[in-house]
Nucleic acid binder design. Structure first.
Lengths: 222, 222
DNA sequence: AGGTTAGCGATTGTTGAACAATCAATCGAG
DNA sequence: CTCGATTGATTGTTCAACAATCGCTAACCT
């Protein structure tokens, strides 16, 4: 086992700070729109202002934070337009990756593991874990394309989407319907019917987008 | 028009430094693999080491530089695998953007302008300008998809590809064949035959990839 | 009174210097 | 000649200070 849960951030202190902030972000401890004071956060994390700025810049490139010049950094608030954009990209990339993937691609193991993990977490009523497993499933689908660039793009997109999920407050409603659908997509893919799998996935993504957009519009009437 | 050519980098000094480095990189003044000393570059650009580090980090995220811990930053050397990956992504994204684009999309004007610019530069024997115009043409194709995320991904990919072009040394051979092909793609698209345009584009990209990979393998026998 | 502007305070942007941590090359011992 | 320790240079990180900029307050003018 190369990297353990806590060992992956061992590189630099800026990386460590970024990782800690990342966890605070996906855990929802930092609400979107909130301003992050450099001095306050730096002394809370025990790093220097300069180092924290490097961490901020990393997270800004991951679109988790936004930087307004001379005003500070803020937790990103995913816009409706950005979410719609994300789903457009997901349909384009995931469906094509699935459709034109050779059979028995190594990443299919990741897909299977993610489905099983999601089912287990569902039975344990742990819905944020279900969400994590679902996202891992889609990440594995993208990995079918064997493209580092797409993998990286998808990692960014996932982070942003996760921020949006955190804005909503019914994780069961958001994640439960998709674990069975993921299993269906995986089953079709494993039989070699990649076109069918892609088709099911596309419907699935359209439904998911509608659900999230609706919940989003309901929650943020502004 | 909000931002002019020279005014876009006015934000911070780190941005300015990054922009200057970017120009040095695409101009080929900085050869791939070269190490960039923090102190040397910082005093050459007239910025502090700390500020330069922020610039380095930006360019690292754009994959123009690579950062090796405790060893420094180096000009990225695009690997053959990365180039192949880039072309795979380009085929996936550009063809689908072209195929599923509505007619008379605003970005088609950018496509037309790029074609005309390439033709003019070709007649003037300015081959690096031809290369720039060609890349602008493809960037406009991606813009047909109306996705900020894809636009950003493509900007990164373009920068990396440009670095690879700089490694080769016959810009006419690299760029001349494609200005007429771009014009053909544009013509098909404007008649509404998006499927035909996408098909031509796919052949085109396959040919371009073969050309570059061959030149690359010839030049770097290592 | 209402709107405008000048100034104030706070925060970010940038710099320089200093020290610790790490790597690579040199030099020396066996 | 090979292996190992020392040295030197570069990066990683912190601190303190100052300049630049923004938002707000309050005084000012009409």
């Amino acid at each position: 086992m190369a990297q353990l849960d806590e060992a992956e951030d061992s590189n630099s202190r800026a990386d460590q700070a970024a990782e800690r902030l990342r966890r605070l972000l996906i855990a929802g401890d930092l609400v979107p729109g909130q301003r992050l004071s450099e001095t306050a956060v730096s002394e809370r994390l025990g790093v220097s202002r300069n180092t924290l700025r490097e961490a901020f810049r990393m997270l800004t490139h991951e679109r988790l934070l936004v930087h307004k010049p001379h005003a500070g950094v803020f937790v990103a608030v995913p816009s409706l337009a950005s979410i719609i954009d994300i789903y457009r990209v997901r349909r384009m990339i995931e469906c094509q990756a699935l459709r034109s993937s050779p059979a028995r691609h190594p990443a299919s193991r990741r897909m299977r593991a993610a489905v099983e993990s999601a089912q287990a977490s569902r039975d344990a009523d742990n819905w944020v874990a279900v969400g994590t497993a679902n996202m891992e499933f889609h990440s594995a689908i993208v990995a079918l394309a064997d493209s580092d660039h797409l993998d990286r793009l998808y990692a960014n997109i996932s982070a942003e989407l996760r921020l949006a999920f955190g804005l909503l407050d019914d994780p069961e409603y958001l994640h439960r319907p998709y674990v069975d659908r993921n299993a269906a997509v995986l089953a079709l893919y494993l039989t070699g019917d990649t076109a069918g799998a892609a088709s099911v996935l596309e419907d699935y993504l359209l439904l998911s987008e509608r659900t999230i957009v609706a919940a989003y519009a309901r929650q943020l009437p502004a």
